[in-house]
Write a protein that binds this DNA or RNA. Structure first.
Length: 628
DNA sequence: GCCGTTTTCGGCCCGACTGTTTTCAGTCG
């Protein structure tokens, strides 16, 4: 490969992200001018482009405007704007908005309670263009005097600004989940709480979480609300009504951002007969729900958070009290979420798949497939995604042979407690001096300790095995920092890039591929190198990586560490499609990290991965067959 | 602006809560 010809790319899908941001902004600008319907059209296009698998430049190069228009939500007008952007780097329509209203709309609307309309007023009255100017105006007490605003709004803006500045609004799933579960348990313990579920992005196990949502059945919601807003840790009550309350909970110290932090939590109480509908509704995603409602409408039904209704004689929205489908509408379903999907002609869809990324179409295929024999084990076109109990062992654990905390014996004990059949020790190797990486000699020595421990388990008749691996380094040229003879003696070899992340795309791709082709390398760890909220993925041609992995039988890791979750959902789906096997590992540096496995499984589920796609769902003998 | 096995025109998901108003717009999910 001629590396000199390759220029560094901004990112694989940089244009996709840039365009989707522009279209989101156009939607906001149109919203400011109270233009009807166009904002939603632009937003829909923005979502479609943002989640597109393929690079939009390639799509345009291949098929021109015609093919762009095949993207759902993209018609003639938006396709032309995409082409304009790809050709000139600008969109005139957007630039004109920006000239008229030079507002950093993306930043300002991140502030809780501020949308496009208010942002426009703030600009017209006070020339506020960005977060810093917003904060200054609020501090000086200028905002309270504007019609439509007041003292409370001003105070909320100040708090909102502080929040955006501190956290950029989202939290890692791995750090939120334990906090959310604690609150869940407290609420669950109330005698007034008949049933409770976590909903929203937390139920969908998204890699980052904006806020925590709980759904509750209660005949007597007021004490629940009172309890919720006075929970220890609540630092702010945003809203408190009879059926809905919203608070900010302080979370102590955030180890990643090194600041003290808080997360918003919402509680919503619904009657039992509507619980399933509400569960569906509040789980989202928004796009999934919109699609579902449309299916309801096609069937002459109406779906909202209170239930599924026959829409015959339905009154216009807002005309009726709660728990209603409108005048004369009859409630068909609502208590059970599965029933709602069923009545709509769909197989039940696991929350992790609810992103309107084809899962509804797949679930629809149920009807056709039930006529076939295979209906029983595969009731729909949906994948039978990997389960949270399917993992038999963790192959990426660091021990105190390097700078991690626990001994190999301690890690093994923890793994046995988790019900695993094996654990893989994969310490860093010598290139990573900062981690006290092992050299060939030390690896051989480590092998002895592992052999001794395994002998002990045999004698005790414990059905458990420690596998000996390492996480070697892929050097800049794609070679490995440990000699082949030493690698060949290990049970398996993980290789990962831990340095020089800013290489040009072609060079980085070649580097990783060389490692994939190495006859001693079995697994590529955290294949794209991103760190959530910290570092973007390095530049690689992932399709080329997949082809090489498939050809060489090299396995790609889904690293479950909270700020990695790498591969991400889109890449997992691609890998599955390409027939590339994956392994879900925690990258544990102490035994408490072993519990992050759940995050990796969630990620695999969101990537539509099935048990068969993931090698460590297999018992140790079958597992070993995947190693070179 | 997009979309179409009911429509190339006429629809677009919809309800709760807040803060401001004095009957409702804006925001959120």
């Amino acid at each position: 490969m001629n590396l000199a010809k390759e220029k560094p790319f901004k990112s694989n899908g940089a244009k996709n992200q840039e365009l989707s941001k522009i279209f989101y902004s156009i939607a906001e600008f149109l919203e400011m001018d109270k233009v009807p319907f166009k904002p939603q059209a632009y937003e829909k296009a923005a979502v479609a482009i943002e989640t597109l698998e393929e690079n939009i430049e390639n799509i345009y190069k291949k098929g021109g405007l015609k093919v762009l228009e095949e993207i759902p939500g993209v018609g003639k007008s938006i396709a032309e704007k995409i082409a304009e952007y790809l050709k000139t780097g600008k969109i005139k329509y957007y630039e004109e908005f920006r000239k008229k209203l030079p507002i950093d709309i993306e930043e300002i609307t991140k502030v809780e309670g501020l949308g496009a309309r208010k942002a426009k007023v703030l600009y017209e009255k006070l020339r506020i263009k960005n977060l810093a100017e917003l904060e200054r105006a609020a501090r000086l007490g200028k905002i309270r005097n504007i019609t439509g605003f007041g003292e409370k709004t001003e105070k909320n803006i100040l708090e909102g600004v502080a929040f955006v500045k501190r956290s950029k609004g989202r939290f890692l799933l791995g750090y939120i989940l334990p906090q959310a579960r604690e609150v869940y348990k407290k609420l669950e313990g109330l005698k007034e709480v008949e049933k409770i579920d976590m909903v929203g992005s937390l139920r969908r196990m998204k890699e980052t979480i904006g806020d925590v949502d709980f759904l509750i059945i209660s005949e007597n919601p007021e004490p629940v609300m009172d309890f919720f807003v006075t929970l220890p840790g609540v630092i702010k009550i945003w809203a408190k009504g009879k059926t809905k309350a919203s608070v900010r909970v302080g979370m102590g110290f955030d180890p990643v951002k090194k600041i003290s932090n808080g997360v918003n939590m919402d509680v919503r109480v619904v009657p039992r007969k509507s619980y399933g509908a509400a569960l569906q509704y509040f789980t989202g995603s928004k796009e999934h729900n919109i699609h579902l409602r449309k299916i309801a409408i096609e069937k002459g039904l109406k779906l909202n958070e209170y239930g599924l209704f026959s829409s015959k004689g339905a009154a216009p929205a807002g005309g009726q009290g709660p728990a209603s489908g409108g005048r004369g509408a009859k409630m068909i379903s609502g208590e059970n979420e599965k029933d709602i999907y069923k009545i709509l002609g769909l197989a039940w869809i696991p929350p992790e798949l609810r992103e309107n990324q084809g899962e509804i179409e797949a679930a629809l295929r149920r009807v056709r497939q039930t006529h076939r024999r295979q209906a029983q084990d595969k009731p729909s076109g949906l994948p039978k995604i990997i389960g949270y109990n399917d993992i038999k062992g963790d192959l990426h654990c660091h021990s105190n042979w390097t700078r991690a905390q626990n001994s190999i014996g301690e890690i093994a004990e923890a793994a046995i407690k988790m019900g695993y059949g094996y654990i893989g020790i994969s310490d860093h190797t010598k290139f990573l001096r900062i981690e006290a990486g092992l050299d060939e000699k030390q690896l051989l020595k480590q092998r002895e300790e592992i052999r001794n421990l395994n002998t002990k388990y045999q004698i005790l008749n414990t059905k458990f095995r420690i596998l000996h691996g390492c996480e070697a380094n892929i050097l800049a040229d794609g070679s490995i920092d440990i000699k082949d003879e030493a690698l060949a003696k290990l049970d398996y070899v993980i290789a990962g890039a831990h340095s020089q992340f800013k290489m040009p795309r072609g060079q980085m791709t070649a580097r990783i591929i060389r490692a994939i082709e190495n006859p001693n390398v079995d697994i590529i760890s955290h294949p794209t190198g991103r760190l959530l909220q910290k570092r973007n993925e390095y530049q690689i041609d992932f399709d080329k990586i997949l082809r090489a992995a498939k050809l060489n039988g090299t396995i790609l890791e889904i690293d479950a560490f909270p700020d990695r979750l790498d591969l991400n959902d889109i890449n997992i789906r691609k890998a599955k499609k390409a027939g590339v096997k994956m392994v879900i590992n925690t990258d544990a540096h102490n035994i408490n990290h072993l519990r992050y496995m759940e995050l990796g499984i969630a990620q695999a589920r969101r990537g539509w991965a099935e048990k068969n796609d993931v090698i460590n769902t297999r018992p140790v003998e079958k597992l070993m067959e995947f190693f070179k």
